[in-house]
Nucleic acid binder design. Structure first.
Lengths: 351, 351
DNA sequence: TCGTTCATTTTGAACGTTCGAATTATTCGG
DNA sequence: CCGAATAATTCGAACGTTCAAAATGAACGA
């Protein structure tokens, strides 16, 4: 197999000029229909494909998005981000965009990578997964005019930077809905197991519980537990809750890991039917039949791409200025209910 | 901020020619030390970065690997492949390679993507994750001289294609070790829950059980169950096993999903201490304290890259010819033991 | 018939890099 | 201090594409 055919080969075969071939590919509407067909036929016959690098060199854009894969987590929760990346790849493909991944060790390293990829014109725009309190990357990216969007709000920014585009999921609303649902179904005392403050995401989710739990006084304190993420942490926290003089009759957790632990604790305490709700609707939750709050990742990804590239195109928009349309989207999660809200160890597998 | 500096800018600033700048970057050893420093200083000062696309256009290689992300699985097992991709990104970075991801719907679609990426010179080499029985992609890739390596053996190929490079994990050995371990610890009757045949991976793993279970006659049949992957499937299968007149006193499963289900069944049957071993050592296994057979993904990735690019470089090697060094690697997994081999619902969380 | 306008196609240059050959600088033996 | 050998550097071209501008052709009204 010789070398790949180029525009010139096609041009020769179709008896037209280079540029016409280029036009057939990039702006077919400006070329006469009969010519178009002739050229297209030659393209198909020769199996011509544009050389992406040559095109990028000339047009000075790569149609490629960069994403940093988070460090591997031992926990269960990593799966959400993997699903995000997956959907990003899918939807990017639909827009004729490519996705390049990289890993990095800390924010500084991530920025170094971003810089390399961008300066080399490998990548046009970046997607940041997860944002911290006062995230140092954001300022740098805005400062250096790197087009990007983050999945995560700018936590703790006094004045939100108008150049910062972001998408996030309204965890507060999600938790609120879950709590209200539990209360509507008869749970008077819904407890909360979350993460220690400050944690942007965690604090929001907890706020959702606070504004809907309907508890007063000491209960508001006692029934809200903060612990690191993890199954055994969740278990321990739930065990403590269940030993209270007035134990809760439902628990909402900030993550599926915590919820799984809580489920075990409930099980151990002989409270197999205690309603428990997790967050993220990970495969584990599905596997063990745990109710969970699901993030609408499809919408998140779609919104992120729209913010970056507009409704349909694949041209990167520069970071927005203050007077533009809102540079962010806040999406609402939904509760996925499962039959029992617990491990379903009741010895009745079939039905 | 104006345009990015180019080799010419650096050349001007350092009082040398374009080509010398290029040499400083690509073959520093052939340029005189004093010159090198002068040029390097100019590079640093101007913040010059080579334009990746221009370089690729000229050198006709992209230093980029393509990977298809598997369709999202609902199950627990997807995590292994995500970890694989993650490690691939890490190790590729160390070799100055980039990783581009894409999704595809079926083999034909995958090949179409590969073709586009390759013809456009976007990607030099591909990594196939998972191989089927008589995988149609392999023949095509070899036929079209696309450099690739697969994580997965060429199942069911009469004559293994010498042009096909692959890495795989010896599931048979892994299961064998696990079974032997269980037997050494006193389990006389170790059962197997696996997948329906034919399934390359599944059949291998089952073979590991067969050659080490030490069972004869009817037991060999009765104590081996085949079922689709999934938690409830595992649960059902295990429940059936435990209702046998002579139930097993340990179970090894072809996946963590099955093992989790089996654990639930054991729990329900009041056999909380029944030793159960899963496969893949997914986060769930870690979370619920389930023993599991772990694939050495670091080594898998390292081997894959070595097969593709040689020991250190980033030059793709063409698909090997028959007379070369072996074009494949078979790695051995290891058993990760966890305290109880089950959900640890024994009411003793702390200790 | 001629000039005008619009649609269509072609031409030359440029994007930033590296290859290969050619040129110049340096070293070394005698 | 000369000439040969080798080290170091430079020059011109090429990679395959698209941009901007120029050229051609067709259609139309006067």
């Amino acid at each position: 197999m010789g070398r790949m055919p180029t525009v010139d080969d096609v041009a020769l075969a179709a008896q037209v000029s280079r540029q016409t071939v280029s036009n057939v590919i990039n702006s077919p509407e400006i070329v006469r229909e009969t010519t178009r067909q002739r050229v297209q036929e030659a393209i198909d016959r020769l199996g011509y494909r544009p050389h992406a690098s040559a095109r990028r060199l000339r047009t000075r854009k790569s149609s490629t998005i960069g994403v940093r894969l988070d460090p591997l987590r031992d926990g269960i929760s990593g799966a959400v981000l993997d699903r995000f990346v997956h959907k990003l790849a899918e939807q990017a493909d639909a827009r004729d965009l490519r996705v390049m991944i990289f890993t990095a060790d800390g924010h500084a390293d991530e920025l170094a990578h971003i810089r390399r990829l961008r300066d080399g014109s490998d990548v046009d725009a970046f997607v940041l997964i997860g944002t911290d309190h006062g995230d140092s990357r954001i300022a740098w990216l805005v400062e250096n005019r790197v087009p990007f969007v983050s999945f995560g709000r700018p936590w703790g920014a006094e004045t939100p930077d108008p150049h910062h585009r972001w998408v996030d999921v309204d965890g507060r609303a999600g938790v609120r809905d879950a709590v209200q649902h539990l209360r509507a179904n008869g749970a008077g005392r819904v407890a909360w197991i979350g993460w220690p403050s400050p944690s942007g995401t965690g604090d929001e989710r907890r706020a959702g519980w606070e504004e809907s739990c309907g508890l007063e006084g000491a209960d508001r304190i006692t029934l809200a537990v903060a612990t690191e993420d993890g199954v055994s942490e969740g278990r321990r926290a739930a065990a403590a809750l269940l030993e209270l003089p007035e134990p809760p009759d439902a628990i909402v957790c900030a993550s599926d890991s915590l919820a799984l632990g809580a489920t075990m604790a409930a099980q151990a305490a002989g409270l197999a039917r205690l309603p428990i709700v997790g967050f993220d609707n990970t495969p584990v939750a599905a596997a063990v039949g745990l109710s969970s709050i699901e993030q609408p990742l499809d919408e998140v990804v779609a919104a992120a791409l729209t913010l970056l590239f507009g409704e349909h195109g694949d041209d990167v928009r520069p970071n927005p200025d203050s007077d533009e349309e809102p540079g962010h989207r806040l999406l609402v999660p939904r509760l996925v209910e499962r039959r029992s809200s617990h491990l379903a160890l009741d010895g009745n597998p079939g039905a």
